[in-house]
Design a protein around this nucleic acid. Structure first.
Length: 938
RNA sequence: GGGCGCAUGGCUCAGCUGGUUAGAGCGCCGCGUUCACAUCGCGGAGACCGCUGGUUCGAAUCCAGCUGCGCCCACCA
């Protein structure tokens, strides 16, 4: 039966199926777009430029819905700008994500081969990671393509590729030469199991049941002791001071005296430090171990204390541990406590729960560990980057995020850029302990490719490019390369210009730098956004983007941030499989408001082939919308005869044509403005309402009488003409959000319609984006239409509430407020008849109010539905009473306002006048309703 | 602990510079096979806009406090 209907409905529109089938359409169009190189941006094009660099996804794993939102937004912007006359570049790429990627690969190698990285060796491990990278980069790229992203794939970059590496080296060299990169000590989070430093965000805290040990620090002169509490007794071996609060009466006299560290017999001072010590906590005395505790480290810096490392790389006690040397640290802890007890120094032990940092990778406790690291001096760089936002050169949307940026930069904390990893850009520093500066000058003095500086025990030599090699200074002076790599963010920070070829002055760089907007998440404002501004200013003297659009963070149904590491990520491919890419895009875009979070509840669903995928009814919004547009198009196209060719709108436009054109242009205006301000959810709602409500529910329905019931050929043709015009505009406006569907429909439209200004390109993605023609916007006709719609709705309500079946036709009497309204409604009597299922509509200002009829009042116009015998008086009385009550409330409200002298005196005249007008109208309505109720009750 | 944000019908969210009869989608209820669409049409019910104060002629909207939640940053010897 469906087949029969299909054939009957589908006059001449071959191949347009009844429901939109996304999967068939999507792959076909994507390959078509890429084959035709429609995503390629030409740096030589004689057009204004627009560019976006993708926030490069980490190659740690596949993309989730958070990325899908991020990429949808960018694609909408890119496609919109392309259609708006810009040469738009969307630069794709991925990030090597140092620690995270090395960690996943190390873990996998360990699981499958029971080998750690030392077993494998640097070269082999890095090789494995490259293989992983290739696999996931391909997967990510595939996901982006499925999403429909209009990336210029020929330009795809990777943060570790040749081009990016060149930029990293150039930047490092430049900063080093200026003295902005230096070597220093820093406490790192040491993973004793993997023997590597881990990043702060790779640490999870776990509550561990431990003890608080209270013991005595004996004074060196033998006269008494200081009570100290600790959760890590073994660190006593590295203590270099005991601190008290300067105003603590109990210990004031001890300040400046010396105490003796048990077991190693080191004498250390008692110092006063108001920052470290909280007199109310513990004993009020704090042992200070600068080499193994972040706070103590800071204290150590303040007081210039020695920093004694007591651990080996594997977490055992080193040669500084006296009798405990060689013990694993937890064994040492036990033995040391026993020792304290034997010495009579242990006071008591309390059970105590502490938050202990654990490595996310090895799940073992991390140890703060002092080591040599490389830093970037942030002072001046940060100040300049702050200036960019303060001066408005870089603008945040929403503006509140500027604060995150400024606050973080304001701390001006030096940036630790070295990581004890193998996966990443190896630091371009070589050490030479034995040579003289003259040796360096002899070897590297010519040109500007090597720079050096003296450290206490060695030369620090930085090469601009390439590998210096171990014997560049001859066989007598060995060069050693620093084994560490750079923080991932060091290369990410260069992304906007590195991807365009910098330091080469490429045409691409000239054309597309600075980029137009950065679209990203709020949690990397400091890590990434701020650093891009810094390097952009430093390397090119120009900020890397004008706008920063921070979009919502996608949360799961429980309100947890969706992330790869949490494992709660939802694969966009699941959603695409179930609902289609356009549905995904539309739904995600409509979620993209100024809010900072977007919840996305999903549930697993078994597919017919047994696979489980994640689905969410939220995407039905987008799927249904796609289907609606599909069917509206199918309907119109099915009615257009092959022989018709429209080249311009008809001469004599009817009222509904003027109305839909006004609505269309108003929508185009609002949509462009919303896009300009990154208000994508607004864009979606505007287009949804215009398409579904204005166009489908009213306009197309209105035109059906022309199509079905008219013998007038011209009328029919005009109806199709105007409808196609509007449809074409809808497709274009919607294309950035729903690219596949609109491209597919565009193809069908083009077969039948050829407007010069609307159907103006072979591919919709190259067509011109509609802009508002303000001469088409007609306030008056929209108001008239609104009243017509409300009258029809009033009639429909009466019918529905009284359970009047569609087959029963009634008559209506409409009593308008004035002659103009009367004339308008008379001209639309057929419409009212059709939409209200009426045999007749009498529009007459002087008509008598019918005695028995369903009633509504719309903007003062009285609407009566005469259906003697069909209307239940009880129902009508109920309706009227409710209506009256509602109106009374409103009357009371406005009355109160108008009686308030404060309002009348102080509010703007326009507001007061409007209120008065409203009041009079409401009173009139109330009178009429009350009269009707009276009549009914008789 | 510091910062930012959120709290609007059962659910997910709009409501941008204070003046709206507080909206939408889903869900719910009723009716509906006239040939675009049941992934649909028509109609309806459902909200003291977290709480308490304040500013104002007027507050969902601005301010303060409180409560609950989320995120980021820093973290306790």
């Amino acid at each position: 039966m469906a087949a029969i209907r299909y054939i009957r409905n589908d006059k001449g529109s071959e191949g347009v199926e009844k429901t939109y089938n996304p999967s068939q359409v999507e792959n076909r169009w994507y390959s078509e777009w890429t084959n035709r190189k429609l995503f390629a941006a030409d740096e030589h094009a004689d057009k204004p430029k627009y560019s976006i660099v993708i926030p490069p996804p980490n190659v740690t794993g596949a993309l989730h819905m958070g990325h899908a939102l991020n990429d949808t937004i960018q694609d909408v912007l890119i496609r919109w700008k392309k259609m708006s006359g810009f040469e738009a570049l969307w630069m794709p790429g991925t990030d090597h994500a140092g620690i995270a990627t090395q960690a996943v690969v190390e873990r996998r190698v360990f699981e499958t081969e029971k080998k750690n990285r030392h077993d494998l060796g640097r070269k082999a491990l890095v090789q494995r990671i490259w293989e992983w990278k290739d696999e996931y980069e391909a997967r990510i790229t595939g996901q982006l393509k499925k999403l429909g992203c209009a990336c210029d794939w020929d330009r795809q970059r990777f943060t570790l590729d040749e081009t990016c590496s060149r930029a990293v080296r150039e930047t490092f060299y430049g900063l080093f030469k200026k003295g902005l990169i230096y070597r220093g000590k820093r406490l790192v989070n040491w993973d004793t199991h993997l023997q590597t430093a881990v990043a702060d965000d790779e640490i999870f805290y776990e509550t561990v049941k431990g003890n608080m040990w209270y013991f005595r620090y004996p004074l060196a002169d033998g006269n008494g002791y200081l009570p100290v509490a600790t959760t890590r007794p073994e660190t006593i071996l590295g203590d270099t001071a005991v601190a008290v609060h300067p105003e603590d009466e109990r210990y004031r006299d001890f300040i400046g005296k010396m105490v003796k560290v048990p077991f190693v017999d080191r004498e250390i001072p008692v110092i006063a430090d108001p920052i470290l010590v909280d007199p109310a906590f513990g004993t009020g005395c704090v042992k200070v171990t600068p080499a193994h505790d972040p706070n103590d480290y800071q204290t150590g810096l303040r007081h210039k204390l020695p920093m004694i490392n007591i651990l080996t790389d594997t977490g055992d006690i080193n040669e500084n541990g006296g009798p405990f040397s060689g013990m694993p640290r937890y064994v040492c802890r036990e033995k040391l406590v026993e020792g304290l007890e034997k010495l009579g120094l242990l006071e008591r032990v309390d059970p105590y729960e502490t938050q202990v940092g654990h490595s996310d990778r090895s799940k073992t406790p991390i140890e703060p560990y002092l080591s040599d690291q490389w830093f970037v001096k942030m002072g001046d760089l940060a100040e300049r980057a702050m200036g960019a936002v303060r001066d408005g050169k870089v603008k945040f949307y929403p503006a509140r995020y500027a604060k995150s940026y400024l606050d973080w930069l304001g701390e001006k904390r030096d940036w630790c850029i070295s990581r004890q990893l193998w996966w990443g850009h190896q630091i371009p520093i070589w050490y030479c302990d034995t040579c003289s500066e003259q040796d360096l000058i002899n070897a590297f003095g010519a040109g500007d490719n090597v720079s050096w500086t003296r450290a206490e025990d060695t030369w620090l030599i930085c090469a601009r490019d390439g590998d210096l090699g171990s014997d560049a200074l001859g066989s007598s002076h060995e060069l050693r390369r620093d084994p560490d790599v750079l923080d991932t963010w060091f290369s990410s920070a260069l992304w906007p210009h590195a991807t365009l070829g910098w330091p080469k002055q490429t045409e691409s760089l000239k054309a597309f730098y600075p980029t137009s907007v950065l679209v990203t998440n709020r949690d990397i404002i400091s890590l990434w956004v701020a650093r891009m501004v810094i390097t952009g200013q430093e390397n090119l003297g120009v900020e890397p983007f004008q706008d920063v659009y921070i979009h919502a963070t996608v949360m799961d149904g429980k309100g947890q941030r969706m992330s790869k590491s949490k494992g709660n990520g939802v694969d966009p491919l699941d959603i695409i499989e179930k609902y289609g890419a356009d549905a995904l895009r539309y739904t995600m875009a409509s979620l993209s408001s100024d809010n900072q979070d977007a919840r996305l509840p999903v549930r697993p669903e078994k597919q017919s082939d047994g696979r489980m995928i994640n689905v969410s009814e939220k995407f039905e919004l987008g799927r249904n919308f796609a289907n609606k547009l599909w069917n509206a198009s199918r309907f119109l196209l099915g009615n257009i005869d092959q022989s018709l060719k429209f080249t311009s709108l008809p001469e004599d436009l009817k009222a509904e044509d003027l109305w839909i054109l006004s609505r269309l242009n108003r929508t185009a205006e609002a949509v462009n403005q919303a896009l300009e301000n990154y208000r994508l959810s607004e864009v979606c709602h505007l287009l949804y309402d215009f398409t579904w409500k204005d166009f489908c529910d009213w306009y197309v329905e209105l035109k059906k009488s022309d199509l079905y019931q008219s013998d007038d050929h011209q009328r029919k043709e005009n109806a199709l003409n105007t409808s196609s015009y509007v449809l074409g505009s809808i497709l274009k406006m919607l294309h950035p959000v729903m690219p596949f569907l609109t491209e597919e429909l565009w193809m069908h439209v083009r077969k039948r319609v050829s407007y010069e200004k609307v159907i103006d390109s072979e591919y919709i993605m190259q067509a011109t984006y509609p802009v508002a023609d303000s001469t088409r916007i007609d306030e008056a006709i929209e108001l008239r239409f609104a009243s017509l719609q409300e009258i029809i709705t009033a009639l429909r309500t009466i019918r529905a509430e009284n359970n009047i079946t569609p087959d029963k036709k009634g008559r209506a009497i409409v009593i308008p407020v004035d002659d103009e309204q009367a004339e308008w409604l008379k001209s639309q009597a057929d419409v009212i008849n059709g939409f209200g299922r009426l045999s007749e509509t009498i529009v007459d200002r002087n008509a008598d109010k019918p005695g028995f009829a369903g009633q509504g009042i719309v903007r003062g116009t009285q609407v009566y539905l005469l259906l003697e015998g069909l209307i239940d008086p009880e129902v009508e009385i109920g309706r009227l009473e409710k209506e009256i009550e509602k109106t009374r409330k409103l009357v009371k409200g406005t009355e109160k306002r108008l009686n308030n002298s404060g309002f009348v005196d102080k509010a703007p005249k326009a507001v007061v006048d409007k209120e008065k007008e409203k009041y009079e109208g409401l009173l009139l309505n109330l009178q009429k309703l009350e009269k009707s109720l009276e009549a009914f009750k008789q």
